[in-house]
């Protein structure tokens, strides 16, 4: 193949990626179908959506920016506490609370980004974890503001658009969350398919060569980190609104590990990986916990080990490998 042909093909590939694939509308129709198919599983559906959005925010820095974080719940928690504190102190309008949560998390992300872009590898894990631990301790100490380990009491979110009250079946909550998550997914999709997103991918693949192409590594890294923090904050605020309660666990290390697990199970750098991972992780956990509440951890651990050992990029990677294999087999069959 000539260089020119290669370039043409690369552009075609890029265009093909940007175009909506056949499975994408199916995926979102499936999410809508959940509402009708599993009316008694709506609270679970809502929490899966929140977790998926959180995983998506991590995918932006990890799958696209190559930044590994063990403390991403820092921003999730900031979003949750922002929304919760506003609601506690008299302003419970859900959409503004949500946006405020995202905004504050973005500011926190911007401050952290100065540090984040300067370290790599294990040090990066430790720095992100360290920031998270310090913030957790601060929230624990400042119980006059945060309620400490008792959680933030007296949160009252208003009716959505002044009309829809949060009901016990979680219908309003589910529809609202799905709408917000879909909009943010479109935003994330736009970002990763923009030239900026491409530059990020290049950064992840080859950290040394990108500056030669004129890419401002640190600025790109900082920008995607802020965007990711904002989305993490939004997911935290979203969960706070559906639970109507905020406690220290939203800043806990466990949540960072969980979200990392979901993302890896699903697959990184493919956007849908976070949705697949969150759904599988939460549904499996829910079902295993119902079967045997005491030892489900074992099976989650086993699934994790198997996925890491035997798949190339989580479930989405396994899925695409399987379809490739099928295609090749079919292709081979017609040729002979």
């Amino acid at each position: 193949m000539t260089t020119e042909a290669q370039t043409t093909k690369a552009i075609a590939d890029f265009r093909a990626q940007v175009r909506w694939q056949w499975y994408e509308p199916l995926f979102w129709l499936g999410a809508i179908a959940w509402y009708f198919l599993f009316p008694t599983y709506l609270p679970l559906g809502t929490q899966i959506l929140c977790a998926a959005l959180f995983a998506l925010s991590l995918d932006l820095i990890l799958g696209y920016g190559g930044i590994v974080s063990l403390g991403h719940t820092t921003f999730f928690g900031i979003g949750a506490y922002t929304a919760g504190l506003l609601a506690k102190h008299g302003w419970g309008e859900p959409i503004t609370c949500l946006l405020a949560g995202g905004a504050l998390a973005a500011i926190a992300g911007w401050i952290c980004s100065f540090v984040i872009v300067r370290v790599q590898g294990v040090a990066l894990l430790l720095v992100t974890l360290g920031i998270n631990l310090v913030l957790y301790e601060a929230a624990n100490k400042a119980y006059t503001i945060t309620g400490g380990a008792d959680g933030l009491q007296g949160i009252e979110f208003w009716k959505l658009f002044g009309v829809f009250d949060y009901d016990i079946y979680g219908r309003v909550s589910f529809v609202y969350t799905l709408a917000v998550v879909f909009v943010l997914f479109l935003v994330a999709r736009r970002i990763v398919h923009s030239p900026f997103g491409l530059a990020l991918k290049g950064m992840r693949e080859n950290w040394k060569r990108m500056p030669a192409l004129g890419a401002a590594l640190r600025r790109h890294g900082a920008l995607i980190f802020v965007l990711s923090a904002a989305i993490a904050g939004l997911s935290g605020a979203l969960l706070a609104e559906s639970v109507q309660f905020v406690a220290l666990d939203s800043l806990g290390v466990q949540r960072s590990v969980d979200v990392l697990t979901m993302l890896i199970v699903g697959g990184t750098g493919v956007l849908y990986g976070s949705f697949v991972g969150a759904t599988v992780y939460m549904v499996v956990r829910d079902q295993l916990a119902d079967l045997n509440p005491a030892y489900w951890y074992f099976w989650i651990g086993l699934i994790l080990v198997v996925i890491v050992l035997f798949t190339r990029n989580g479930l989405v990677g396994a899925l695409s490998d399987a379809t490739d294999w099928l295609k090749r087999r079919r292709g081979g069959g017609t040729a002979s």
Binding site: V68, Y297, F298, G301, L302, L304
Partner: peptide, 11 residues
Amino acid sequence: VLLTVGIIYMA
């Protein structure tokens, strides 16, 4: 990291 976290859960 993920592999060893899985092993921790199992343990």
